[in-house]
Design a protein around this nucleic acid. Sequence first.
DNA 1: ATAAACCTTGGAGGTAGGTCACAGGTCAAG
DNA 2: CTTGACCTGTGACCTACCTCCAAGGTTTAT
Lengths: 148, 148
Amino acid sequence: MYRIGELAKACHINNDTLRFYEKNGLLCPSSRTESGYRLYTEGDREILQFILRAKDVGFTLAEIKELLSIEINKADKACADVKILVDIKLNAVEKKLAELSRFHTSLKRLSDACCGSSISAEHCTILEALESDTDDVRHERHHKQGGK
Amino acid sequence: MYRIGELAKACHINNDTLRFYEKNGLLCPSSRTESGYRLYTEGDREILQFILRAKDVGFTLAEIKELLSIEINKADKACADVKILVDIKLNAVEKKLAELSRFHTSLKRLSDACCGSSISAEHCTILEALESDTDDVRHERHHKQGGK
DNA sequence: ATAAACCTTGGAGGTAGGTCACAGGTCAAG
DNA sequence: CTTGACCTGTGACCTACCTCCAAGGTTTAT
């Protein structure tokens, strides 16, 4: 069992952030002491780490809340509805993955082009590096933007 | 050449967002008309799309600005410094990629477990789905969090 | 038994990233 | 030559996501 300060320290965040997440329904401590102190379990920590990772890759807290609330009830007819939500998120993840892969390729190219490589700095900016990547993915670029 | 409204519409963002990006040094129009109207080129649009994609995968505007300002001057001694920055970003991208891959695996598992699959819903929540993934990556989890 | 270091709630304040409103200038169409 | 859809700048406002403060209760170390 962690007290709020312990969990916060373990995950490098602020105590207040934990209270904030609780207030917003993302992570409630599994229990409290008699005097009212929050007590978090290992499982709570797992959830917190999930939240932090999800945030880091661009999901909003609202989206993360949705992800966390996914519960496929095996006997439930609403299972199909849940699958739809999951597939929507799956799609978002796949889009992010594709975009990150391009970033990765470009940055790698940029890194390799720099400093004594035989490739010699032909690509001088991230944009030029992306540019040379363009042909492979141009057909990939007619998607809606401004998500969130 | 795009006027502000045209570019904004093309990229599904607000005119004011473009002015905001300009004010914050992310994207300045290549020129102006005599009367002061902003004029954006195809190249400006490329930059904008880069900004929007980067934002979508979790980079802050400040980080994006850094990425955009990368210029490896072939004859420049500071090239090494730039490489360091690029490699830092490369690292961040790789971390995000790894995390997204986990999300993807979990969501896929969740999706497959749902609705008439032979797998039968053993994994009922995103967390359980992540859980079963845990052994493969547990040693991967001692990193700093709370970036930004 | 008292200080230091925790914790509580409630509410104000702060930063990032926009978004809107206003007062007015520009421009193409009728 | 005016109407309507654009554009300008400046500045107030908004949401998401925290972060800090105040006033006080609890625990632990000395």
